[in-house]
Amino acid sequence: MNQDLSAPAPHAAVDASRHLIGLQEMPRARMEALLDRAQHFADGHDERRALAGVAVCTLFFEPSTRTRLSFQLAAQRLGADVLSFDASTSSTSKGETACDTLKTIEAMGVRGFIVRHKDDGAVAGLAAEAGEGTCLINAGDGRSAHPTQGLLDMLTLRQAKGADFSRLKVLIVGDVKHSRVARSDLHALRTLGTGEGRSIEIRVCGPQALLPDDDTLHGCAVSQDFDAALEGVDAVMMLRLQRERMEDGLVASLEDYHRDYGLTLARLARADADAVVLHPGPMNRGVEITDAVADGPQSLVLRQVANGVAVRMAVLESLLKG
């Protein structure tokens, strides 16, 4: 197998019943069922024997804190055996390909792989090569997708605002162009019917240079005026500047960016009085968000982290149980 996973690639055709690569084709009924099950876990119910005897591996080729640890904790709470792969201390540093790494660990009897990779389409490419009975979950690939983050954001919104997404006004702000989280959130918001039957209520705001030029923003109200976009929204999803993925010169300076797109208490006052603030982390405090907002009463950032464990339990259980 000589597939080159170093270059961006479109999602390969994979079995959605075996793998979770993205949210763009997930039916609403399945998404809502996963959110219901995640809420069950969030309410404190564990299934300690659900994955007893099943081995899973966090196969991360990029750094991570929240995603890696919450997947590990989720698998442990389901009773799985958990292996943690660190690319910096593995044979990948000797030239081993991602596919060979997957096949090697798969040969040890590991059934579930939680994969993070820097390249678009890499997880789908690996899933297409996985053996029968092996499951891959995309923990973030390039700029393509981060499906469990999208699901945990929807669970957090549902807890705060109720299950009827059709009445919500949601604003996503910042570096959408380089954000896999934004893409998964947009897929999920559309699937759950945000603004359905009314005027467009999925709003996106950011500098023109940081907005995608493909069909990612189809159906969204797009603006470069942050103050205007905030008017009356129920939820604000802030994104960090993905400086490790962007070309030089897309942002004049961090100070200018904060002036135009930083969420402060004064700006937040333009939103609905009960508006909530989300951020996938890690936060660049003083750039896209101030301390007063990040740590304030309208912030759900830490609830997102807690919900990440519950959502990842629901996803692991749905793909690996039985």
Rank of each mutant, 00 (worst) to 15 (best):
T92C: 04
E106V: 01
P280W: 09
I202Q: 05
S6A: 14
R111Y: 07
A221I: 01
Y261N: 00
P8R: 10
Y261L: 03
M283Y: 00
L126D: 03
P282Q: 11
D260F: 01
L302C: 03
L268M: 08
T191H: 10
E62G: 02
T148M: 15
V56Q: 00
R190A: 11
R49A: 14
E132S: 14
E231D: 15
R37P: 09
A229V: 05
G131P: 14
L210S: 06
T148I: 08
A221D: 13
I202P: 10
G125P: 06
T191R: 13
L155W: 11
S253D: 13
A252T: 03
A292R: 04
A292Y: 05
D164C: 02
S17T: 15
I114V: 12
G296Q: 06
H187A: 15
L155Y: 07
L241T: 02
Q224T: 11
L5A: 05
V305K: 12
E62L: 00
S6T: 15
V293W: 12
L316K: 01
E317K: 14
G193K: 10
D248P: 12
H40V: 08
Q149K: 02
R66I: 04
Q242P: 04
H146I: 04
L51Y: 14
K177A: 15
L69N: 08
M246A: 13
N284Q: 09
D213I: 01
A310K: 07
M1E: 11
V54I: 10
H146W: 00
E129V: 03
L278R: 05
R48T: 13
L171A: 08
T191L: 15
H19L: 10
S199M: 11
R49D: 15
V173N: 09
S90K: 07
L126S: 02
G219K: 01
D214Q: 02
R28S: 09
F61A: 00
A33F: 14
D260R: 06
Q208V: 11
E317P: 01
T264D: 06
A160E: 09
A292F: 04
G121E: 04
R68D: 05
F41G: 03
M26L: 15
D141G: 06
I114T: 02
R259Q: 11
V54Q: 09
G22P: 03
V311S: 02
S91F: 01
P282E: 12
A12E: 08
A314V: 00
L230I: 07
T65V: 10
P297D: 10
D86F: 09
P280K: 08
F85H: 05
A294S: 03
G197I: 11
S6K: 14
A310M: 13
E317C: 10
S91P: 11
T216D: 13
G193C: 14
R243N: 00
L73Y: 03
R240E: 05
P27K: 13
V176I: 15
V82E: 05
L69K: 00
E32M: 14
